[in-house]
Amino acid sequence: MSQKIYFDESGFTGNNLLHPRQNYFAYASVATNDDEARTVVERIIKKNNIQGGELKGKNLVKFAKGRKIITEILDLFDGRIKISVSDKKFALAAKLHEYIFEPCYSEVNSLFYGIGFHRYIANVLYMEFVSRGAGADELFTEFEKLMREGEGHNLEAIFSSSAIAEHSEIIKMIREFAQKRNQDIRSELKLLADGETGKWVLDLTNSALFTLLASWGLEHEVLTAVCDHSKPLQHNQEMFTTMIGNTSKTYSEIEGNQYPLTFNLSGPIEFSTSHESHGIQIADVVAAAAVYVFSGNTDDSADRWRHAIARQAHYGSVVPDIDELKLDVQRGQTNALVLQHLHQRAMEDQNLTEGMAGIIEHLKRALASPRFQMGA
């Protein structure tokens, strides 16, 4: 028997990840059924005399009475909720690695993913951005514009707007690396322009939904996905249609951890509206609560929700982890040196991947030596 999972979001801004008033995106899912969802929603609406006959999370979080309703819903569906939360600025930093760095070593990308280089780049860029490092604002803005427009004109001068006197060494290396490897970036942009992904390349909806479904697939043999109408999802459903009737289980292994890559859908994604689907209303409330918590609110309700949200919000969430940058541990040291090495190779027009596996192993062994001191 198929398990219905209802999905909805909060904080959607599409390809605009630098939206000044929407810093977080949450995609929430709830395992329930039509009858239970209808009973719960109608009871809450009647008991609290809610106007409009519909639960809307963005309205409920504004008032103490509404936040009590959210608490009731979180308690009622505890254990049947999964949430993906993204810090949009960090997500943009991760996208920069994906479309600026990875195309340059795509044939051996598992080598770099294996040492967490993607996380290092995303976190170091995020820290540059939030600390207002000189040049970071310009670099992020130019990258978002590049990806939204999909035009690779004048890539030889990419990120030139970040070339200011006070810029950091990190920003300088990333800018110069991208300029020297502009042909790899141009090829990647052409693939996006020729495919279905390009129009919503920065949007976070598809990846959040896929990761959540993959996680639900570990608990239920067959899934039925019911989603609120979404332009990004409706624009490109290929990754989901391939999962219809799929009974195989495939995993990826990154840094010793296994992550599910497959699930079994009963049919195509079903699209509905919150007005028509009570399950979507519940998912909407959960998503709004997640954004409320991550946005730094500190009232009693937020404090009470924080543990529950954090416990259920690690399914494909895209949030910074500054531990990746610690230079007193081998991981941070390794990736800092790898960035320097890649930059040097790019500047000298050398092959980026030849012998890199051996160089990374050499760096690890050297850094493990008690005689090594970073910067010595």
Rank of each mutant, 00 (worst) to 15 (best):
residue 170 I to C: 06
residue 193 A to G: 14
residue 150 G to W: 09
residue 161 S to M: 05
residue 126 Y to D: 04
residue 194 D to L: 14
residue 168 S to C: 05
residue 189 L to E: 05
residue 169 E to N: 13
residue 139 L to M: 15
residue 114 G to A: 10
residue 117 F to S: 07
residue 119 R to K: 14
residue 125 L to I: 05
residue 122 A to D: 01
residue 202 L to N: 10
residue 193 A to V: 01
residue 192 L to D: 05
residue 193 A to Y: 07
residue 188 E to I: 02
residue 150 G to S: 08
residue 170 I to K: 01
residue 184 D to E: 13
residue 128 E to K: 02
residue 166 E to K: 15
residue 143 F to P: 04
residue 160 S to T: 06
residue 137 D to I: 03
residue 171 I to K: 10
residue 157 A to C: 09
residue 169 E to F: 09
residue 198 G to H: 07
residue 130 V to Q: 12
residue 136 A to L: 04
residue 140 F to M: 13
residue 156 E to W: 02
residue 142 E to D: 08
residue 165 A to L: 12
residue 160 S to W: 01
residue 179 Q to Y: 08
residue 152 G to V: 05
residue 118 H to I: 00
residue 196 E to L: 14
residue 180 K to R: 15
residue 120 Y to C: 05
residue 199 K to V: 11
residue 163 A to L: 11
residue 178 A to K: 10
residue 172 K to Q: 12
residue 196 E to Q: 13
residue 198 G to S: 11
residue 155 L to S: 02
residue 198 G to N: 10
residue 124 V to C: 09
residue 126 Y to E: 02
residue 122 A to R: 00
residue 114 G to M: 11
residue 144 E to P: 03
residue 199 K to H: 11
residue 138 E to T: 06
residue 181 R to Y: 00
residue 183 Q to H: 13
residue 126 Y to Q: 06
residue 189 L to Q: 07
residue 173 M to H: 06
residue 171 I to H: 09
residue 194 D to S: 14
residue 143 F to H: 02
residue 204 L to R: 08
residue 127 M to T: 10
residue 142 E to A: 05
residue 126 Y to S: 05
residue 166 E to Q: 14
residue 167 H to R: 15
residue 175 R to V: 07
residue 136 A to D: 02
residue 184 D to P: 04
residue 139 L to A: 08
